[in-house]
Write a protein that binds this DNA or RNA. Structure first.
Length: 97
DNA sequence: GTTGTGACCCAGC
DNA sequence: CGCTGGGCCACAA
């Protein structure tokens, strides 16, 4: 991974407002990454000090190992999940608006 | 070189 | 709704 892209991803994730969520695909697109997998890779290494709980899959369900923790944190921000799924139409973050 | 693995996504059935 | 297969890219063995 190139340093700059790595940094870019961190910036974008850090800029996601509370009470909103973004998908891996969204972040990847904004960062100009070829595949969303890279987003996960960055988070695995450097995600500890970022709002990683606001990053979820395109389906609305967080990554498998974090589901519990993540939904709990989101719930604390007012983002409610139904059947372990977040309502993307409602909470998805769109940079323009 | 190849193979396996992973905080993923989408089209098709 | 859900499952499957293919595509994707970086990294380690």
């Amino acid at each position: 991974m190139e340093e700059q892209t790595h940094e870019q991803v961190r910036e974008i994730i850090a800029s996601v407002p509370a009470r909103k969520v973004a998908t891996y695909g969204d972040i990847a697109a904004l960062a100009g990454l070829p595949t969303p997998r890279m987003v996960g890779q960055v988070l695995r290494e450097d995600g500890f000090d970022l709002p990683w709980h606001r990053i979820i899959r395109a389906t609305g369900v967080p990554a498998p190992h974090l589901v519990t923790e993540q939904l709990q944190r989101l719930r604390a921000e007012g983002v409610l999940a139904v059947n372990s799924k977040v309502d993307l139409r409602r909470y998805r973050w769109n940079p323009q608006f």
